[in-house]
Simulated scan of single mutants.
Amino acid sequence: MVCLDTLIRLRRGQRTPQALRRLALPEGMTAPMGCDAVAVPAPLGPRVLPLLPRVGCVYADGEHWWWIVPSDSDYALRWPEPARYSAGAFLPDTPSVPDLIHKPGGTVPYTPPIPLYLALCRVTGTTPTWTRPISA
Rank of each mutant, 00 (worst) to 15 (best):
L116G: 02
P115M: 03
S96G: 10
P80W: 00
G125S: 09
L25E: 06
S71E: 08
A31S: 14
A89Y: 03
P128C: 00
V97N: 15
L116S: 01
T124F: 12
A89E: 03
L4D: 05
P41D: 08
P32V: 06
D61F: 01
L4Q: 03
V38P: 12
T131W: 10
C3N: 08
V48M: 11
A60V: 06
W65L: 03
R9K: 09
A24D: 12
D93S: 06
C121N: 04
L118P: 03
Y110H: 11
A136H: 07
C121D: 00
R84Q: 15
C57L: 01
G28R: 12
G45F: 14
P115K: 03
G62E: 13
A76S: 02
Y117C: 06
V58I: 02
V97I: 15
T94E: 13
P80H: 05
G56V: 11
V69M: 02
T30N: 04
T124S: 09
M1Y: 05
L23E: 02
P92E: 13
P113I: 07
I68R: 02
S96Y: 10
K103C: 15
P43G: 14
G62A: 12
G28V: 11
T124G: 08
R12A: 01
Y59W: 13
A31Y: 10
V48S: 09
Y85Q: 14
V69Q: 02
W67G: 02
G28W: 13
C3M: 04
P70L: 07
A136V: 09
R22M: 11
P17Q: 08
L77R: 00
V69S: 01
T131F: 10
T107I: 02
P43N: 14
P92F: 12
R54K: 15
E27P: 15
P109R: 00
I101A: 08
A119L: 08
G125N: 09
V108G: 04
T131C: 09
P95D: 10
Y75H: 07
P133G: 13
F90W: 08
G106N: 14
S71M: 06
D93T: 08
C3Y: 03
D61R: 01
T16S: 06
A42E: 09
T6E: 04
S86H: 15
F90E: 01
L4H: 00
W130I: 04
V58N: 03
P128H: 01
F90S: 05
T94W: 12
L7C: 00
A60M: 10
S135W: 10
R12C: 05
V97F: 15
R15H: 14
A31P: 13
L7A: 01
T94A: 13
R47G: 11
P133L: 12
S96V: 13
L51N: 05
V48D: 09
R15W: 13
T111V: 09
P80Y: 03
R12L: 04
L120Y: 02
E81G: 11
L77D: 05
V108M: 01
G125H: 10
A42D: 05
V2D: 03
L10G: 12
C57F: 02
I8E: 10
A89P: 06
Q18A: 15
V108P: 02
R9E: 07
P92M: 09
V40T: 09
P41G: 08
A89G: 06
H102G: 06
S73M: 13
T111K: 04
L7Y: 02
G34T: 04
